[in-house]
């Protein structure tokens, strides 16, 4: 069984300068309760790894707007203008990664691989400084594994072993991030006893999860907030 704690307890060890993965896509699947707790705690200089920075003050976008990140690895920041402003002013060091490469770099870390060979980015700025390999006559870029100290994952339902169900389009980056972080904090809207969640319905096996937190905020209506 995994410990079920409050959001404030779950984030209390996340120190300044830690690396943090936040699952979600334009806010969909962000762990809103955990993000709020981290903002309250006041951790700074995060090395933030997230698909995108959502919208200003929405979900993971809050960590940007509240000046909590020193570096950002993401694939898209266009929907949160604050990210671009901080990048231009030098406050935030941003590395932009193609979204599929982003997912596979994280997956390769979690899967114990030495990286991935991808055709994405050949001949573009993305290939700068990267090793190229020719495999069966086709050229690929070597993209290295990407891990983190912590990951925030959001589930609709989890059992006390941490097995989690992420419905619909909320899965996005959560599956690979859960494999690639040293400490995975799972926020769940509903926490059930073992046996109540059909093993066939498990999106993320509980073995990856360190701590479980009950969600206190409803999945935001992103359209209204955006």
């Amino acid at each position: 069984m995994k410990p079920i704690v409050t959001a404030d307890e779950a984030v209390k060890d996340i120190r300044d300068g830690c690396s943090l993965m936040v699952a979600g896509f334009m806010g969909c699947g962000n762990a809103f309760t955990l993000i709020d707790a981290l903002v309250r705690k006041g951790t700074r200089d995060l090395n933030l790894i997230t698909s995108d920075t959502a919208y200003p003050e929405v979900g993971v976008g809050r960590l940007i707007c509240q000046n909590r990140a020193a570096t950002l690895i993401a694939s898209h920041i266009g929907t949160n203008p604050v990210s671009g402003q901080k990048m231009n002013s030098g406050e935030l060091k941003v590395t932009l990664v193609p979204q599929g490469t982003f997912a596979e770099r994280i997956r390769s870390k979690g899967a114990g691989l030495g990286g991935v060979l991808t055709p994405t980015g050949r001949g573009t700025a993305v290939e700068e400084g990267k090793q190229k390999l020719e495999i069966d006559g086709r050229e690929y870029l070597l993209e290295k594994p990407l891990g983190a100290d912590y990951a925030f994952i959001k589930a609709e339902m989890a059992d006390r072993y941490g097995n989690a169900w992420l419905p619909a389009a909320t899965k996005n980056m959560a599956v690979v991030m859960a494999m690639a972080a040293d400490h995975v904090i799972l926020e769940a809207e509903k926490i059930v006893e073992p046996g109540e969640l059909d093993p066939d319905r498990v999106t993320i096996p509980g073995i990856f999860v360190s701590t479980i937190v009950k969600s206190e905020l409803p999945a935001a209506n992103l359209q209204q907030k955006a």
Binding site: A74, S75, I77, L96, Q99, G100, P119, T120, T124, V126
Partner: peptide
């Protein structure tokens, strides 16, 4: 305009 490539590079390559 530097919004990031999102999924565009993967889509065009793949």
């Amino acid at each position: 305009m530097v919004p990031g490539m999102g999924g565009a590079m993967d889509l065009v390559a793949g």
